[in-house]
Design a protein around this nucleic acid. Structure first.
Length: 483
DNA sequence: CGGGAATTGAC
DNA sequence: TCAATTCCC
């Protein structure tokens, strides 16, 4: 045994052992390691939504199990990291703490504060890049300014060659036992993660548990299943809402059970070039979102196009709730929203449709939608969520033009032609024939009767006429021009 | 990662 | 006539 002092590895959105630069660095140093996760109650960073916390519960449990196989464990505490971590460093005599950079302004400021507090107890904080393909500063235009357009950024990104290869989980890890925390010295009791993380109202845990497996092993299985299957026809398959052709890796990616570099390198030689390029560019969008958030910290709160600050959003609690519950009377919108509620996840095509419907047809502020997704998505990502909402609402830097309004019926025709997605998530419409299920209010009376549907009772009438909603949005958005 | 009206073009 | 293409919103 060397006399190298212990190191602390502070886990955040990187709940894995493989391709974990912070853990790898701690291992390479030689001393014993204390793994810690802090459920941040300081109020300085945005609290995760309830669905996301549910997934976190599983991810933390799996991380602990994996660490136990290596003879270690992860200490889970609740409170202010700037108090907890220095206290732990003092108690364990650790002189170095490893973690990964965070790219939200508040989170980065918190890390700065933790670093300063650690310094006072003789502990050095080392932040490594481990949660994105490339750190946000690394892709810049020739004039040194950040890119605003994805395709231009992507070109610059690819011009740098392949992203760094993932690193394997360190072997021969040596851990500091957690038992010291049960001594009198520590003032921090271990966090009861069941109590702190599992949702009670609503009790999502039992339902969502049917759809998701936890842990690195399950995540890599999902990755391999996708790479050896749906990736081969991803270009078209990803848009079929009823098919299970999308990767469904987002929850693992969000919580760092998988790293983007692992996904990239696992897929880089699979499938046809066109399908692969489409998928990798989706992974690119995730990095670009973090890049955009890094350069625009106000992204989750403020329109990046200030022109839309004057937009007169409708304030309708009733319409917002109908959207949230999947009772808008537009089947494809309701299908998406119900899939979200039950599984904590929504097909990406459906995300665009429901988001466009809220921000355009209902003319409700995209921030209301962003907040709902934040609370109900197990993959709710600080960067992607905000970027994509601003994209759909037309308020982002590189956004869909404001007059681009998804027509839910055309979307149904194109991406759920047989209505299978609607049948799966809006079962009360299941008996309607293929050509009527996307727009029951347009169906003949006897068709509805045969399917056992009385509109307004078994299934709602549309809460807004698609034509009128579209016109209303066009008018309201157009008014902001030049104002 | 559009929609939809206007227009073209193959019958 | 009607589907494909063009072009403005």
């Amino acid at each position: 045994m060397t006399d190298t002092p212990p190191s602390i590895v502070w886990f955040r959105d990187d709940l894995r052992l493989q391709d974990h630069p912070a853990l790898d660095a701690a291992s390479g140093r030689g001393g014993r390691i204390l793994c810690v996760y802090v459920l941040d109650r300081s109020g300085t960073t945005r609290a995760q939504g309830r669905a996301s916390l549910w997934f976190l519960h599983g991810a933390l449990g799996s991380l602990r199990q994996t660490l136990k196989k290596h003879g270690g464990d992860c200490l889970i505490l609740e409170g202010d990291p700037a108090e907890i971590l220095p206290a732990l460093a003092k108690e364990t005599k650790a002189d170095i703490l490893y973690c990964h950079h965070r790219y939200q302004k508040e989170a980065n400021a918190q890390d700065d504060a933790v670093s300063q507090a650690l310094e006072k107890v003789g502990c050095d904080m080392k932040r490594l890049h481990g949660t994105v393909l490339r750190q946000p500063e690394s892709v810049v235009t020739k004039t040194g300014t950040p890119y605003k357009i994805f395709s231009a950024w992507w070109k610059g990104f690819e011009g740098l060659g392949a992203p760094p290869s993932p690193i394997p989980a360190p072997s021969g890890l040596s851990f500091l036992p957690l038992s010291f925390t049960h001594g009198k010295k520590t003032k921090f009791a271990p966090c009861d993660i069941d109590k702190a993380l599992l949702p009670t109202k609503p009790d999502w845990a039992s339902k969502m548990g049917e759809y998701w497996d936890h842990g690195e092993e399950a995540a890599h299985e999902a990755l391999d299943d996708f790479a050896s299957g749906p990736l081969a026809h991803y270009d078209t398959g990803r848009n079929d809402m009823a098919a299970e052709e999308s990767s469904r890796l987002s929850p693992y990616l969000r919580h760092g059970v998988l790293s983007p570099r692992q996904i990239w390198h696992h897929c880089k030689n699979k499938g046809e070039p066109a399908d692969r390029e489409t998928f990798l560019s989706e992974l690119g969008w995730r990095d670009f979102s973090w890049y955009t958030l890094f350069h625009n910290p106000e992204l989750p709160q403020r329109n990046l196009k200030k022109q839309f600050d004057s937009l007169n959003w409708r304030k309708s609690r009733k319409d917002l709730q109908a959207w949230q519950k999947g009772k808008t009377g537009i089947p494809v919108v309701d299908a998406g929203m119900r899939q979200l509620w039950e599984t904590g996840w929504m097909h990406n095509r459906a995300r665009m449709i429901v988001a466009s419907f809220l921000a355009k047809h209902l003319l409700i502020d995209w921030r209301q939608g962003e907040a709902w997704f934040w609370d109900t998505l197990i993959d709710a990502d600080p960067a992607s969520n905000a970027v994509n909402w601003q994209w759909v609402a037309g308020t982002g830097i590189e956004a869909s033009p404001f007059f681009r309004i998804f027509n839910p019926l055309r979307q149904s025709d194109k991406f759920d032609p047989k209505g299978d997605y609607i049948r799966r998530w809006v079962p009360e419409l299941a008996r309607l024939p293929d050509d009527a299920i996307a727009a029951p209010w347009q169906a003949d009376k006897d068709v509805l009767e045969r399917a056992g549907i009385r509109l307004g009772r078994d299934y709602p009438e549309p809460i807004v006429s698609l034509d009128e909603g579209r016109d209303r949005a066009m008018t309201a958005y157009r008014k902001t021009k030049g104002s």
